[in-house]
Design a protein around this nucleic acid. Structure first.
Length: 271
DNA sequence: ATGGGCACCTGGCTGC
DNA sequence: TGCAGCCAGGTGCCCA
């Protein structure tokens, strides 16, 4: 599910309910997430107050008094604010029970999500240390994309999804950004012109910002912290629209595979 | 350094 | 109805 807009929507959803509250308990029902959650983790966070709810790339950072919870939603995860006595469903893996009577409940059918607790600077954690700039940050700009594409033979779409070059762009938004930038997904990065790198950067930023505004994209199971789906699906030009007419020129949208992921593009609008 | 492929896991859909 | 096969929003890791 979640790319940057969905994680940011989740962050904004939990922030007003979590910040300032004390964690009464962390109840772990299924520790076998992407990495096994240590048995001692609940004991470490119980009793701590939540100071901030931040985001870095697709990670949620729940800052506590003595450390930070690092949460990733994987492909199918969601974190919802619910009354603590809400009955549990299949794939509910933990509850972060707050002193307000609410809980932050993590559900993740595929268990590709993860939960870590780090003390000290979370930016130094191995999972965060080597991450590239945020796409909505001024550091991600046309000059930057121009520079990092010069010697690269990878397809631009795969480059956009490489978190060592820019974070937060997953399969949906990589496809959508390249449509809006009028660049074919298979173009080798180093063949891009200055003008094209500028268009790509602007398209990435605008597509992510627009998606955040409407609560992200729900295809199957994604819901925000309030249980509501995101509405960006209605704005998709190419993603999962194989053989359907391009919304701009009516040419059938094409599908192909790059790096075991589906790619969609319009052969007329994108060069 | 770069690029490619696999792995982790469950569920939903398609076609026989 | 059952079952095999394929696909799905991510990303760390191993290999060439």
């Amino acid at each position: 599910m979640p790319e940057l807009p969905e994680v940011e929507t989740t962050r904004r959803g939990i922030e007003p309910h979590a910040v300032g509250r004390k964690i009464v308990a962390l109840q772990l029902y299924e520790p076998r997430l992407r990495w096994r959650v240590p048995d001692e983790l609940p004991g470490l966070v119980a009793g701590q107050r939540v100071l901030h709810a931040k985001r870095r790339a697709k990670y949620l950072l729940v800052e506590l008094e003595s450390g930070t919870l690092l949460l990733h939603l994987g492909m199918s995860g969601s974190l919802r604010v619910l009354p603590a006595d809400t009955p549990r469903l299949t794939h509910d893996h933990f509850d972060l029970i707050l002193d307000s009577g609410n809980t932050l409940r993590f559900n993740d059918p595929r268990r590709f999500g993860s939960l870590h607790y780090v003390t000290g600077d979370p930016g130094e954690h191995p999972l965060l240390a080597k991450l590239a700039p945020e796409p909505l940050d001024p550091a991600f700009n046309a000059d930057y994309l121009w520079r990092i594409t010069r010697r690269r033979r990878v397809a631009i779409k795969q480059l956009l999804m490489n978190s060592r070059l820019v974070v937060g762009v997953g399969n949906i938004y990589a496809n959508e950004a390249l449509f809006r930038a009028k660049v074919r997904p298979r173009r080798q990065a180093r063949t891009l012109t200055r003008v094209e790198t500028g268009r790509i950067v602007r398209a990435v930023k605008s597509v992510l910002a627009m998606a955040i505004r409407v609560g992200g994209t729900t295809l199957r199971d994604y819901v925000g912290a309030d249980g509501q789906p995101g509405y960006f699906r209605q704005k998709l030009y190419v993603y999962e629209r194989n053989a359907q007419p391009c919304r701009t020129c009516r040419t059938p949208v094409r599908q192909l595979t790059q790096g075991q992921r589906s790619t969609y593009y319009c052969p007329t609008c994108q060069k």
